[in-house]
């Protein structure tokens, strides 16, 4: 069997000054084409987990394995960041250039693409997200929803093999939210999506986890059915307790 894209082995993490670890003895494998919804209360360690995966926070115990190799140094994690794209909660943190095209081309240029190729890829990615012609728009004049989509374009322009999305629907209006659902549902990539929006999770992911006492716990899918009423699959046969 081939190595999974991502594997966490007995990962432990505790923030300085705290007495309870956020993650402890956490094991996880991301299989190809797996779409994982991660939910749970604030402070349960969801974002921490993504940051550990991407090498932004070094785990105090255990190992992050990428394609079978243990990642430890910053140089190792550059490889991870090249293969896994992560969308931050706040788009303003992610859009670093005043103009949209420069920002979307940032990742491709970091990957070593030529200016022409980076520009073309940036334009293609924008067009794919329905943002054709946004290249010269100024970042601070974009609406919240546009900012979110532009920051997603910046991540997708890296052409990642997998995606980590940290609360992608936060503060989005229903239209932009639906556009996002549409975009993500059509991306044939494994992904981990953090969200409190269960409808959204039901539309873009198919496996559900939460973090309990520092461990990733897979939740049976019926939990979604028990709580969600206005969900998009409501016309399918299902049970309420």
């Amino acid at each position: 069997m081939s190595e999974p894209l991502l594997e966490l082995v007995q990962v432990g993490f505790m923030y300085p000054g705290k007495t309870v670890p956020v993650l402890s003895g956490l094991n996880f494998r991301l299989e190809a084409s797996e779409r994982i919804g991660l939910y749970g209360p604030n402070g349960s360690g969801k974002t921490t987990l993504l940051h550990v995966i991407m090498g932004l926070l070094p785990p105090q115990a255990g190992a992050v394995r990428h394609k079978g190799r243990v990642m430890t140094t910053e140089r190792d994690f550059r490889e991870v960041r090249r293969s896994i794209g992560m969308l931050l909660q706040n788009a303003d943190d992610q859009i670093i250039y005043p103009t949209v095209l420069d920002d979307v081309a940032f990742g491709p240029l970091n990957r070593g693409l030529s200016r022409g190729a980076a520009r073309e890829l940036a334009e293609q990615t924008l067009a794919m997200l329905g943002l054709a012609g946004f290249g010269d728009r100024l970042a601070h004049r974009l609406s919240g929803g546009e900012k979110k989509l532009v920051s997603l374009a910046g991540v997708l322009a890296m052409e990642p093999e997998a995606l980590l999305l940290d609360e992608p629907t936060g503060g989005l209006d229903p239209d932009t939210r639906n556009r996002l659902v549409d975009i993500l549902a059509h991306l044939a990539k494994p992904m981990i999506v953090i969200s409190h929006d269960w409808d959204f999770l039901a539309q873009v992911t198919d496996t559900y986890y939460s973090i309990q006492s520092g461990q990733l716990i897979r939740n049976p899918d019926f939990i979604l059915h028990r709580h969600v009423h206005g969900h998009p699959m409501g016309d399918h046969e299902h049970h309420h307790h």
Binding site: H51, N90, D93, L101, A105
Partner: peptide, 24 residues
């Protein structure tokens, strides 16, 4: 705090200390 997050976001997109620029 934001500067920290911005820096993280730059790392996530492969920033290695070189500032690329699209010459338009």
């Amino acid at each position: 705090d934001r500067s920290q997050r911005v820096y993280q976001a730059m790392l996530l997109r492969g920033f290695t200390g070189v500032f690329p620029c699209l010459d338009r």
